[in-house]
Amino acid sequence: MNSSFQKKSLGSKIFDCANVGFMLLFSVLMIYPFLNLLALSLNDGADAARGGIFLWPRMFSIDAYSFMLHENKLFSGFGISILRVLVGTTTCVMATGLLAYISTVRHFSGRKLMRIMFLMTMYISGGLIPTYLLIVKLGLINSFHVYWIPSLLNAYYMLIMASYMQNLPESLFESARIDGANELGIYFRIVMPISLPVFASIAVFSSVGHWNSWFDVVLYNSNGHWDTLQVYLRKLLLEVESFEEIKNQQIAQSKFRTLSPVTLRAAVTMVVTLPIVFIYPFLQKYFVGGITLGAVKG
């Protein structure tokens, strides 16, 4: 707010100072956990067991990270996570964008039907167990396809994309139609290029969702062939796995003698978190517009 209108009272100045102090404390609270894990991940394993690492590594070592390069499970988990994000996001954005487009074509008589059919799904759902049984029945469990087919079309994304496309000039599409363009052509050649901002923001949201998701992997891909990075990290947290891994590796090569579960966990957590941090500036750029809507939805 603009406070230059009047001279500030003393109380007001004290309030400002306290407010800034509180905000600094608050941001430390938000960031510190990450900094601590970063320091831990860059510390020597045996030394970390002594405790006392708060902000800075005491005995610098990148063992935990170089160990990951020798760790097949983690590698494949990383690959599957990335594949999931790429395939899941591309298909979801393309398909949902097309749905949004046809639901905004003004002369299409089925437009209302499509909107209602999808909007209904925002308010009513079958719940966990009927959905699970359906996925089992469709034979989608223990396969990669469960990562993209059930999330292909999203009513909420449709709403955001359609509200953007509604503001595009109708004459653009009409002249293309007169020139003989088909609807898919219009979608790919006209709608997508000029709606790029909304496509980008939905892509960012969808990819964060795919990257972070954990429970659906546990539920549908329990055989371990399609474990993502999140699942790998979870298994490390359950202790058993990490000790086994490390013991095997220590026997195999004496290089990682001082690796400890604590530093390994911290390093894997960093690998899971950093892509989000890198994508974050893009996120920031895009999320403000559509997201007030999202916050309402809950």
């Binding site: 990450f34 964060v208 979870r234 966990r265 957590t269 899971v272 978190t273 989000i276 974050y280």
Partner: peptide, 20 residues
């Protein structure tokens, strides 16, 4: 910007933080 960051972190990572 800082305050939004934890929203985009998965619960698995939060669990890892809590363990640490």
């Amino acid at each position: 910007t800082i305050s939004y960051l934890p929203h985009f972190i998965s619960w698995v990572v939060v669990a890892s933080i809590l363990f640490a």
